[in-house]
Design a protein around this nucleic acid. Structure first.
Lengths: 188, 188
DNA sequence: TACTATACGGAACGTGCGCCCCGTTTTGCC
DNA sequence: GGCAAAACGGGGCGCACGTTCCGTATAGTA
């Protein structure tokens, strides 16, 4: 099925890692608009080398986003296992929103066009939704989150909060997020 | 001061209006990424004609955004004069967020880079803030909005809500906005 | 109607960027 | 050390798009 890939040569493995690492940092700091040549330059390789490892620019940042999402799913599961449901849910909410403040590339990828998560990595999207649903229903069960919001609603709110973090102007980020968190709590 | 502009020839005035109108519709429907040639084509003029009336692409959509902002400020003032403070504030909030759902170009301009409202149209930005402050302090005075949020916070929340409207996936837009509105109300 | 300033259109130019090609270098194996 | 396969790098191609140029058409005026 998926063609038998043989093991990479040592230099190839090194370069691939260097490209991934550099791309991760540069995309996070400056967004997805950074040219491939720039990433190659900073990684100390030629543009051709980047393209041998990742057939297109999209493939490169998809690899990065997939990694990032997997990591976030792991954190979501940890939170679900350890803390109380309300803290777990809002802890994850904070993780997601601060990811938006840190990582421009992630926001570009999640919000911008040219990236349909469902199409590209359906299993990761599913895992993400499952982990979120788990956090959400538990939090709703103990009355920490209003009962009528869905997983999709929460996802959308998170994307919106990431946008606020990134394009926020001179608003106080913490106060703005507090407003949204408060809105997620049940009416008192 | 501002160079004496003599009256435009009839065809020039007609073409200018057609370009503005077309650009408004196309930017709203598809965002600011639409090429100038495309707008010229749909307006039934040549690209050169667009550039005689607007020296750069930026100038074109700035003209549109200024117009839009002026209109919104007018609506804000009307609301401030007629309805009760709480209704007025949240009525304006809804106006702004549904503008985001309707007008991709506006969201691009407000959120995206390459557009520093303060630099481009300081007096409009000021008028906008003043109108918003008026709505906000009145609503806070009657206890319809929590007392600690600032004008900048509300602006940021609106931008975030516009992003949610635009990139929202399969969330229920009304429920998502309701969450944010609820968060803006004072703790009970 | 004849004349001129004004405006028009669209071909052409410059730039930026994704992506590919191919002569050269490096790696791993005998 | 010698050799083939694998990988490298960076120049170059093609395309898209903002902007400009200039020969042509048209509005306004006498």
């Amino acid at each position: 099925m998926t063609g038998n890939t043989r093991p990479l040569r040592a230099d190839a493995r090194r370069n691939r890692a260097k490209v991934l690492q550099t791309a991760y940092e540069v995309f996070a700091a400056e967004g997805l608009a950074v040219p491939i040549d720039e990433i190659a330059r900073r990684a100390g390789v030629g543009a051709g080398t980047v393209y041998r490892h990742f057939p297109t620019k999209e493939a490169l940042y998809q690899a990065i986003v997939v990694d990032r999402v997997e990591h976030l799913v792991g954190q979501a599961r940890e939170l679900a296992a350890t803390a109380d449901p309300g803290e777990a849910f809002f802890g994850f909410f904070d993780l997601m929103t601060s990811a938006g403040a840190t990582d421009k590339g992630l926001v570009d990828a999640l919000a911008g066009e040219g990236f349909d998560i469902e199409a590209v990595m359906p299993e990761h999207e599913q895992a993400f939704k499952d982990a979120m649903r788990d956090l959400l229903v538990r939090a709703q069960a103990v009355g920490a989150v209003r009962a009528d919001v869905t997983v999709a609603d929460v996802k959308t709110l998170m994307v919106g909060c990431q946008a606020m973090q990134r394009y926020g102007g001179d608003a106080a980020p913490e106060r703005v997020l507090e407003v949204v968190r408060e809105g997620l709590r049940p009416a008192r």
